[in-house]
Simulated scan of single mutants.
Amino acid sequence: MKNRRDTFKAGMGASFLSLMLILGGCGSNAAEVATTPASTTDSNTPAASTTEESAAPAEKLKVETSFYPMYEFARNVGGDLADVELLVPAGTEPHDWEPTPQDIVKIEEADLLVYNGAGMESWVDQVLDASANGDLLAVEASKGIDIMEGSEEEGHDRGHDEAAEEGHDHDHDAAAEEDHDHDHGEAATEEHDHDHEEAGHTHSHDHGGLDPHVWLSPALAIEEVRGIEQAFAEKDPSNAAQYKSNADAYVAKLEALNTEFKDGLSGTKRTDFITQHAAFGYLAREYDLTQVPIAGLSPEQEPSAQEMAEIVEFAKEHDVKTIFFETLVSSKVAEAIASEIGAKTAVLNPLEGLTDEEIAAGEDYLSIMRANLAALQAALNE
């Protein structure tokens, strides 16, 4: 991973030299809101008057988002006032994704870049540090949220009940927060002190020992939406009231979802669940559950034979009947454990991206989270 990141850094520098020569010749900052009148008008709209005020329709905000939950949240906040694009393609696991030169151009031309932070997007600091777009507003959606510590070995240091519970004692000290340095100043635009290449943080996916999966708690998703709303209003203050209205409407849906989770997961027969990787710590903390991950924060990490034996032992001792896997990575480890103990497998979706099939079926954050709730209810009441 280290060598690949070094190669990425070197390539990034070369790409930006070329890109800046191209973009520099455009004569204006790419991130400023354009004032050029639209070339066409809706046939259902009244004919424009000849006054200067009506001759130049307001330009939409151009928003780039890192991966699916950020896209969904930003799209609901922006509504008709923003063109929101998703950088990570459908069906792509985002932990290892890195932007192409074409993606970098998109970011350079954007008004806002919305990303999760907490180490999820290992590429973002390099892109922002090299950016020549002084007007780009970088929005770290997890800013201000109590970020949990995690490790690639989290799934294997369980010691059964006690260790599993301790693994979710998330009242971390201030030092853990300071290491991540969430206080980036004005709208996360000044400093991006997330260089996780220090000794001890060179593991795959480069989360820097932090758990970035905050969006899987509906309560924390609300906080991310509110942060995105504030950034939209800062960039486009004339439409702040509409962004607030849009956010209010979506937050109401998230609040209803949160209530469904609270009601649906209270009083279950069991509180521990085995999942493919350690993506559900925030959800477990919010609803008093215990996540027992097969792997750590890396979804593609495979356990050793000893670690597999520990999971099998835990599952047998606790009469686990369902092993959860996810959609964007191989399910073979989960299936092997389920076969060993005579359990079944089921999907618990970390919502790191939608598949083409999910998009075609009209799935979204709310529908998939409700499917996750139903899956957990079934497994925890077996």
Rank of each mutant, 00 (worst) to 15 (best):
134 G>F: 06
50 T>H: 11
47 A>V: 15
311 I>E: 00
336 A>R: 12
318 H>D: 04
220 L>H: 08
82 A>S: 08
101 P>H: 10
29 N>Q: 13
35 T>K: 14
80 D>G: 09
56 A>Q: 10
165 E>L: 15
100 T>K: 10
38 A>N: 14
208 G>K: 03
140 E>I: 12
146 D>S: 11
147 I>P: 00
247 A>E: 05
282 Y>H: 11
166 E>D: 15
199 A>M: 14
164 A>Y: 07
233 A>W: 08
377 Q>P: 05
209 G>F: 03
209 G>L: 07
81 L>N: 12
35 T>F: 09
308 M>Q: 08
101 P>K: 12
88 V>L: 02
245 S>W: 02
96 D>A: 13
19 L>P: 00
88 V>R: 01
306 Q>G: 08
20 M>K: 06
231 A>Y: 03
11 G>F: 05
87 L>F: 03
11 G>T: 09
108 E>K: 00
360 A>C: 11
165 E>D: 15
363 E>N: 13
133 N>H: 06
299 P>V: 02
168 H>E: 15
176 A>P: 00
40 T>Q: 13
379 A>F: 01
21 L>K: 00
328 L>A: 09
112 L>S: 02
279 A>Q: 02
302 E>N: 08
274 I>F: 02
63 V>T: 10
348 L>C: 10
325 F>E: 01
350 P>E: 06
224 E>P: 02
318 H>V: 02
134 G>A: 14
36 T>S: 11
111 D>H: 14
49 S>I: 10
1 M>V: 12
130 A>S: 12
175 A>W: 07
282 Y>Q: 04
301 Q>R: 11
100 T>P: 00
344 K>H: 12
96 D>E: 09
223 E>V: 06
112 L>K: 05
152 E>M: 10
334 A>W: 05
349 N>S: 13
154 E>W: 05
323 I>R: 02
98 E>C: 06
257 L>A: 06
238 S>K: 14
286 E>L: 11
78 G>A: 08
14 A>K: 13
89 P>S: 05
106 K>D: 08
225 V>T: 05
49 S>L: 13
60 K>M: 07
166 E>N: 15
179 D>F: 06
148 M>R: 08
235 K>L: 10
101 P>R: 12
12 M>S: 03
285 R>V: 09
227 G>R: 03
172 H>P: 05
149 E>W: 03
104 I>A: 04
337 I>C: 04
259 T>E: 15
36 T>A: 15
266 S>A: 15
41 T>I: 10
332 K>R: 13
163 A>W: 15
227 G>A: 05
274 I>Y: 02
262 K>I: 09
233 A>P: 07
287 Y>E: 01
35 T>M: 11
183 D>M: 07
242 Q>E: 15
117 G>V: 06
152 E>T: 10
138 A>S: 14
185 G>N: 07
382 E>P: 02
40 T>L: 14
194 H>E: 11
292 V>R: 01
370 R>P: 06
42 D>F: 08
111 D>W: 03
20 M>T: 04
68 Y>M: 11
359 I>S: 04
311 I>T: 07
106 K>F: 05
265 L>C: 04
246 N>K: 07
128 L>Q: 09
233 A>V: 11
364 D>S: 13
284 A>F: 04
11 G>W: 06
162 E>V: 15
356 D>Y: 04
97 W>F: 14
156 H>G: 12
372 N>G: 03
342 G>V: 13
334 A>N: 04
240 A>Y: 04
142 S>Q: 03
325 F>R: 07
199 A>G: 14
199 A>Q: 12
180 H>E: 07
188 A>R: 00
66 S>K: 04
